[in-house]
Computed example of a mutant assay.
Amino acid sequence: MTNTLPHIIEQLERLQSERIIVGVPRSNDHLTMIALVQEYGKTIRPVHGDWLVIPTENARAMHVTHASQVPGMFRPKGKNILAIKDESSPNGLKVMFVLRKETRIPARPFLRYTYQTNVRLWANYAAVLVQKMIVGKMSVEEVETLLARRIVSSMKSTIRHFSKPANSPLTQSIKGFNDPLIDDKKLLDSITYFFERKF
């Protein structure tokens, strides 16, 4: 009878020596910034000038990202908006941008929520996978990959269903829906995993 204990110990040591990292790719600074802002919240203030210039759904529908792209735009007296004349609108204006001194993005801790909600489920799933590995039905790589994919799936589910705090009415009107962690799905689609040696 073959003694498989040394092989099992070696496999378990390999599992112990690596950790699974799940989230946005480290190489994407923009998505990392978005994830951190969503996780912890942030007050955004203008870098240049006195106002944040926030495009409305009208600007987005015209694929306009900057106020200078819209000819004939002006700021109506006493209003914190930039608009163009539009006779078909009730007030004769089409609002293209909203002006704000600052805007607060509330914390939506999807990373911490995913971990707290699922850590026991992941541990149970990992135990099942390790049992299969011990009896020779699965390799170390398969255990790590299946567990990593389960964690990614959990995080994507959190992003899809995270609803509070909701988007502001302005953000909802711009996006056309109220999914606080989803806009163009870049954050959602970016969630991935890799393995890193502990020592």
Score class of each variant (00 low, 15 high):
M1K: 07
T4S: 14
P6G: 00
H7Y: 11
H7A: 14
I9R: 09
E10K: 13
Q11M: 12
L12S: 03
E13T: 12
E13M: 11
R14K: 15
S17K: 09
S17D: 13
E18F: 15
I20M: 03
I21A: 06
V22I: 08
P25E: 10
S27I: 07
N28I: 08
T32L: 15
I34T: 09
I34S: 04
I34C: 04
L36G: 10
Y40T: 12
R45C: 01
V47R: 13
P55K: 07
E57W: 09
A59F: 02
A59G: 04
R60V: 10
A61V: 07
A61W: 08
H63L: 13
H63Y: 11
H66I: 07
V70F: 07
V70N: 01
V70T: 04
V70S: 00
P71I: 00
P71N: 05
K77H: 13
I81T: 11
S89M: 15
P90C: 00
G92T: 05
G92W: 05
K94M: 13
M96Q: 08
V98D: 01
E102Y: 09
T103F: 10
P106E: 08
A107P: 09
P109I: 02
L111C: 10
R112Y: 10
R112H: 10
Y115C: 04
V119H: 13
L121C: 06
W122Y: 04
Y125K: 04
Y125T: 00
A126V: 08
M133E: 03
I134R: 05
V135M: 13
K137T: 07
V143S: 06
V143C: 09
E144H: 12
T145S: 11
L146M: 14
L147W: 07
R149L: 15
R149I: 11
R150S: 10
R150C: 02
V152T: 04
V152D: 06
S153T: 15
S154Y: 01
S154E: 13
M155V: 08
M155W: 07
I159W: 07
H161Y: 14
H161D: 14
S163G: 06
S163C: 02
K164Y: 11
P165H: 00
S168K: 03
S168V: 04
P169N: 00
L170E: 10
T171F: 14
S173V: 03
S173T: 10
S173D: 10
I174T: 14
K175F: 05
G176D: 01
N178P: 01
D179R: 15
P180A: 02
I182Y: 08
K185C: 12
K185H: 15
K186G: 08
L187M: 07
S190G: 09
I191Y: 06
Y193H: 12
F194C: 00
R197D: 11
F199I: 12
